[in-house]
């Protein structure tokens, strides 16, 4: 069956079963491979995309549930030359190690930091609880995110 998606600002379609996990459609049909498929059970967050702006695990979302909504993947939030504030902060603080978790981390934290740019450390930690990172130990990621508010303070 043909599923129509509005993804990163473009209309795309894929001939798949309506209950196919969205992550498989994004990666295998639309070839947007920035979104990672790792645990496939909602724990690791590597597959996080935005559905109408809300971070969502695309491994557990049937593609039909994304029809008629705006889907944004990591390719849609910014890339070399037009990185967003979260991507800049992670690069500047040299946080990324193996990179497996980062597409999902950027998606979750972009949505969160837009809503709560001055969130304290404890709240950022709680907001990151759906994104597992096996390499960094998290603290450096949080330092990088806290630097966004600090920078806005000094430039204001």
């Amino acid at each position: 069956m043909t599923m129509r998606l509005f993804i990163n600002g473009e209309e795309r379609s894929a001939a798949v079963h309506p209950l196919t996990p969205l992550v498989d459609v994004i990666r295998d049909e639309l070839l947007l491979t920035g979104t990672k498929s790792v645990c496939r059970e909602g724990f690791c967050g590597a597959c996080t995309v935005h559905i109408d702006g809300v971070p969502t695990m695309s491994c557990l979302l049937p593609v039909i549930a994304a029809e008629g909504k705006a889907v944004t993947t990591i390719e849609g939030v910014g890339g070399p030359g037009n990185m967003n504030a979260v991507q800049h902060a992670l690069e500047e603080h040299d946080v990324v190690q193996c990179g497996m978790c980062f597409p999902g981390m950027v998606m979750s934290m972009t949505a969160y930091m837009e809503r709560r740019p001055a969130a304290p450390r404890a709240d950022i930690k709680a907001a990151m609880s759906g994104n597992i990172c096996r390499c960094t130990g998290y603290e450096r990621i949080i330092d990088a995110l806290l630097s966004i508010a600090a920078k806005e303070d000094t430039t204001a």
Binding site: F43, G45, T48, V54, P55, T56, S108, Y112, A127, G130
Partner: peptide
């Protein structure tokens, strides 16, 4: 319960 993206759905 769970984590933020799961709680949202």
């Amino acid at each position: 319960a769970a984590n933020p993206p799961i709680r949202a759905v």
